[in-house]
Simulated assay, not measured.
Amino acid sequence: MAKRDYYEVLGLEKNASADDIKKAYRKKAIQFHPDKNPGDKQAEENFKEAAEAYDVLSDPQKRQRYDQFGHAGMGGAASGGGFGGGMSMDDIFSQFGDIFGGHFGGFGGFGGFSGGSRGGRRVNRGSDLRVKVKLTLKDIANGVEKKIKVKKYVACSKCNGSGAEDDHSKSTCSTCNGSGVVTRITNTILGQMQTQSACPTCGGEGKIITHKCSVCAGEGIVRDEEVITINIPAGVAEGMQLSMSGKGNAARRGGINGDLLILVEEEPHPELIRDENDLLYNLLLSFPQAALGDTVEVPTIDGKAKVKIDPGTQPGKVLRLRNKGLPSVNSYGTGDLLVNVSVYIPETLSSAEKETLTKLKDEANFQPKKSVKDKIFSKFRNLFD
């Protein structure tokens, strides 16, 4: 099922301000919060959808890519789920808890999210990783699978990321009784104010490690290498950033992994120049070829293509080869190959060549007609308008 437009999800116009986006997301999150809609799967999906939309539109760089490329610019649609892939409840509560002030979920008279074993505990999140991937025009035209080796933090294999030496090396925090948060009541002139914050004893995890893992020293993560397969969609562009959810650094003690951010770099083509989805090629003809006509070959992304040169072809003429360019990242068609005709004038001539051209110089057919002169002058003048 195709994703809805993020602006539509939050009920916003495309020129919405950052404050408008935050207010709209808060309204949707309150409306579809799991505690307010227990057991309602559709409300839960709407809750996740709103959070995903906010994640993109609240980030200026992500928003710019989304406005330019749509969902494909975020990577999700084009890679078969490898990029993006939606957000889990832990992602949402971990990343956006501060939007409501204090402990996430405690807004408007209903409590925080309590699904599964999460309770009110803080969930650690691993940091994101950034890598650069160099692509040829052929890679960009067809899409490509790349395997890269990344040095990163991974879950400790001995303790499975828990940080504890064994199953009996963790105990419930006595300060917060396992909730991960502490509540403080303050008397003010407006009455009693209740605030919640992460437990200072366990750091919001709800558990205390009594015997730390001997391999990771209780962190739950170790430094290692991982080979990651990246599926690059066709039509990406220089500077575009894709993301793979959960492929960044592992989080301490079984939290949420960070993301892998992939920055696209284009390798220059020896003969073709990219102009958005079109490709440009400068075709250099000899004077006889331009005057008499010919059939020549021009380079394309996949090989060669034959082009017919009509007799009397003028320098500056552009020949268009339909659909020989690059595909749109949104699958909205393919660009063209534009062949710009140039005519080569020899810098030095042999005696025989000079004699031949001297005979032709005064021939009437080799002098430009007034209509041709006017056309050339008109083009020249337009350069300065």
Rank of each mutant, 00 (worst) to 15 (best):
V215H: 08
I189P: 02
E226N: 09
E225S: 09
G178Q: 06
V181H: 07
N187V: 06
V154E: 02
S174F: 04
K152A: 10
K207T: 12
E145T: 00
T210D: 08
K151Y: 01
G143N: 07
Q196P: 05
L137C: 11
G191S: 01
I189L: 07
N142T: 08
S197W: 03
E226G: 02
I209D: 05
I148Q: 04
G143Q: 10
R223Q: 05
M193V: 15
T188I: 00
H168S: 13
I228H: 13
V227M: 11
Q192R: 12
C159M: 10
R184T: 15
K170N: 00
Q192E: 15
H211Q: 14
V215T: 04
L190Y: 02
S169W: 05
C156K: 02
K149C: 13
E219I: 07
E226W: 05
E219S: 15
G143M: 00
I228S: 09
G161V: 09
S171Y: 06
E145C: 12
K138L: 11
G178E: 12
K149A: 10
N187D: 12
A217C: 05
K138N: 08
K132C: 07
C213I: 05
V150D: 12
V227L: 14
T183G: 14
C159P: 06
A155E: 05
A217W: 05
C176M: 08
S197K: 14
K212Q: 03
L190M: 11
R184I: 15
T201Q: 01
E145A: 03
K158H: 10
G206D: 01
T136V: 11
I209L: 10
E226V: 10
A155Y: 04
M193Q: 15
I185R: 15
G163Y: 01
I221M: 12
G220I: 06
N187R: 03
Y153G: 05
D167P: 03
S157A: 14
Q192K: 14
C173T: 11
K212P: 03
L135Y: 01
K158F: 07
S169L: 10
C159A: 13
C202K: 04
T175F: 03
G180D: 05
C159Q: 11
R223K: 13
C202P: 02
G220V: 11
I221Y: 08
Q192S: 11
